[in-house]
C-alpha cells in the first residue's frame, strides 16, 4: 500500500516536471520569436521613417515648382477663375435638340459625329469669341485649392454643377489629344501640392500651340473628366469677363 502510494506520487511529480519543462522551453522559443519580430518591426519602422523623410524631401515646394514649370502648362489660379455657385448656369432642359450642336469650346480635334448631343443655349459666336481666351481658362483650370483650410471657397466641380443624370459619357479616345478642360487638383491627405506659382511662368497661353506640347500630352489622365457644354460656357464667360 505504502509502496503504491509512493509510486503514484513519484509518477505525478515526474509528469508535472515533464510538463513544466516542456512549457518552459515552449515559452523560451516564443520569446525568441517575439524578439526577432520586434527587431524586424524596428527595422521596418526605421525604413518607413527614411521613406517619409525622402517623400517630404521630394515634395519640397521649391522642387515641385521647378518641375511643374518644366513639365506642366499650369499657372497660378487667379481670382477671376473663382465664381460663386449662384452664378453657375443650370443646364437648359433638353427639349430642343439641335443636331448640329457647336463643339464645347475646349474640345478640339473631335470628330463631329462623336460630339455629345447636348442642348446648348450659346450661339456659335460666343463660343468662338471666347475660344481664344478659353484656353487661358483651360490652362489655369478651375483649381480647387489642395489645402486643408477650414473654409473652402465654392469651387467648381464638374460633378457638383451638373446633375448626375445630365452627365455626358466620357470622351472617346479620339479626344485624348485635346487638353483636359477642368484640372482639379485633388486634395491629398498630406496636402503638399503647392500652387504652381510663378509670375514669370509663360507667355500668354493663347500664343501657344497647346495640343502639340509633349509635356501636355502626357498630362491628361486616362479617364478624362466629364466634359460638358455648360462648363464650357462657364469658362468662356469667365474668359470673356476678363
Amino acid at each position: 500500500m505504502k509502496y503504491k502510494s509512493a509510486l503514484f506520487w513519484g509518477g505525478l511529480i515526474a509528469a508535472a516536471g515533464f510538463v513544466l519543462f516542456e512549457t518552459s522551453y515552449e515559452v523560451q522559443e516564443l520569446e525568441e520569436k517575439l524578439g526577432s519580430l520586434n527587431r524586424k518591426i524596428m527595422v521596418e519602422q526605421e525604413a518607413i521613417q527614411v521613406l517619409k523623410a525622402e517623400w517630404s524631401f521630394l515634395n519640397d515646394p521649391t522642387r515641385l515648382e521647378t518641375l511643374s514649370r518644366e513639365h506642366l502648362a499650369l499657372q497660378p489660379t487667379e481670382a477671376r477663375q473663382f465664381v460663386a455657385m449662384t452664378i453657375v448656369p443650370m443646364r437648359p432642359s433638353p427639349t430642343v435638340a439641335p443636331e448640329e450642336a457647336p463643339l464645347p469650346p475646349m474640345v478640339r480635334n473631335q470628330t463631329p459625329g462623336k460630339t455629345p448631343n447636348v442642348a446648348t443655349a450659346s450661339t456659335g459666336d460666343s463660343v468662338v469669341g471666347g475660344g481664344a481666351i478659353v484656353q487661358g481658362g483651360v490652362q489655369g483650370g478651375v483649381v480647387i485649392p489642395a489645402s486643408a483650410s477650414p473654409i473652402k471657397p465654392a469651387p467648381i466641380k464638374p460633378s457638383a454643377i451638373v446633375p448626375a443624370s445630365a452627365k455626358v459619357p466620357p470622351l472617346p479616345s479620339a479626344a485624348k489629344s485635346a487638353p483636359a478642360p477642368v484640372v482639379t487638383t485633388r486634395p491629398t491627405e498630406v496636402a503638399t501640392k503647392p500652387p504652381v506659382t510663378s509670375r514669370t511662368l509663360a507667355p500668354p497661353p493663347a500664343a501657344r500651340p497647346q495640343p502639340q506640347q509633349a509635356g501636355f500630352q502626357a498630362a491628361p489622365p486616362p479617364a478624362a473628366p466629364a466634359q460638358h457644354d455648360s462648363i464650357g460656357l462657364l469658362v468662356a464667360r469667365l474668359g470673356a469677363n476678363r
Binding site: V83, I87, A121, T123, S126, G130
Partner: peptide
C-alpha cells in the same frame, strides 16, 4: 449684374463677349 458678391458676371445670352 446679378446680386451677390462675385467676380465673374454672366453676359446676356447672344451678346458677343468682348
Amino acid at each position: 449684374q446679378p446680386k451677390g458678391s462675385t467676380v465673374a458676371s454672366v453676359p446676356p445670352a447672344g451678346n458677343k463677349p468682348r
